[in-house]
Design a protein around this nucleic acid. Structure first.
Lengths: 190, 190
DNA sequence: TTGAACTTTCAAAAGTTTCTGAAGATTCAA
DNA sequence: TTGAATCTTCAGAAACTTTTGAAAGTTCAA
């Protein structure tokens, strides 16, 4: 076994914190950690570098990078004279969260409302159901409808807040000389 | 094995939908299902009743009821002449979600900010760290601080929205004659 | 007291998610 | 082409979560 060397403890600590944020929003913790290591490193890193720093297997790194690229929060970078692919963090991690959350919430709200409506219909068809049950189902349905509207409103305001975050992560300090020399390329296939 | 009889399919469907909502917010699905069965049944139910309707083991029902009472969304009800304890749903399920979510978000945001701050300090102490790293950590910290404020603001507006939900679930149709006769009692010990 | 009816607790089973590691695919220099 | 370096995929391992079921605990009527 070759000796691997993990990252500076401070980077690991920060990466883990970002991992927790990401996990809270329903992604795998590993995605947040990988993003954080890329963000904190001043320049592109290869998959191997990331695996070493975070002590993750090649497979896990590959899967994390694929998913992060799918969300467009990590970009592929080609360095002349390098066989390996390199990766860099996009600063708009928050965009990813906002995008997915809104989709997920919409999907959940819709599915819940539909099932409640179906349940209501079933009770009605089977002769009104037990006393009070129909009224209760009607209430649940109306709450679900209400929730759908509230979610739409939330999503709007959330979007605004997330864009604030995005601004805060970019700006001064961006791009080292080394990084600037690089020819950029965004993921294509898939 | 005694033959058990699950609830009307419509109730199971609705219960499952509520379970998904609850699960989305980080509780066990079973909690939502138990709450929904209690809410949809016009009157108190015993733990055994619930287990039968949802085809859950006695242990799972007991654990779910304990947790739901801890969140004060299910109340214990004593029926004269009954040995068993009975349970009823409180209509403010949303209060539970709001309460917990705000606590969880606050806790997460605080923990993340603190860890990022510590990481920043560590990098500073170890001589500035790699180029650009310190600045990036400063940015992450400021995003975390910003997030803490945004969360506080969210929580306020969310609370307002949740109270709307609560209103929609209560009101007309509440309390059967049977339920009214009952002497109420809220959980004590623990 | 005793025992029947019911509830709670908790170790182990079952279920779910995530990660590892190795085989196969890909890329590129020679 | 060939082979060395690197990446991807995926079956199984590991880690984590939830449920079961049986034993211990409670309560109450007799």
């Amino acid at each position: 076994m070759t000796m691997t060397h993990p990252s500076h403890p401070a980077v690991l600590l920060a990466a883990d914190a970002v991992g927790d944020v990401i996990e809270y929003w329903g992604f795998r913790k590993a995605l947040g950690r990988v993003w954080a290591v890329l963000y904190l490193w001043d320049g592109p890193l290869s998959a191997g570098d990331i695996g070493e720093r975070l002590q993750m297997s090649a497979g896990a790194v590959s899967m994390a990078l694929t998913e992060l690229q799918r969300w467009a929060v990590v970009k592929r970078v080609w360095l002349p004279g390098e066989r390996r692919e390199f990766f860099e963090a996009e600063v708009d991690l928050w965009k990813m969260i906002a995008k997915v959350i809104s989709e997920r919430e919409r999907y959940l709200a819709r599915g819940v409302r539909e099932r409640l409506e179906q349940a209501k219909r079933m009770v009605e068809e089977s002769g009104g159901g037990v006393k009070g049950q129909r009224e209760k189902l009607e209430k649940l349905v109306s709450v679900a409808q209400l929730a759908e509207h509230v979610i739409e409103a939330f999503i709007q305001s959330r979007m605004a807040d997330f864009s604030t975050f995005t601004g805060a992560l970019s700006g001064a300090g961006e791009g080292s000389a080394k990084a600037r020399k690089v020819r950029l390329e965004t993921g294509r296939k898939r």
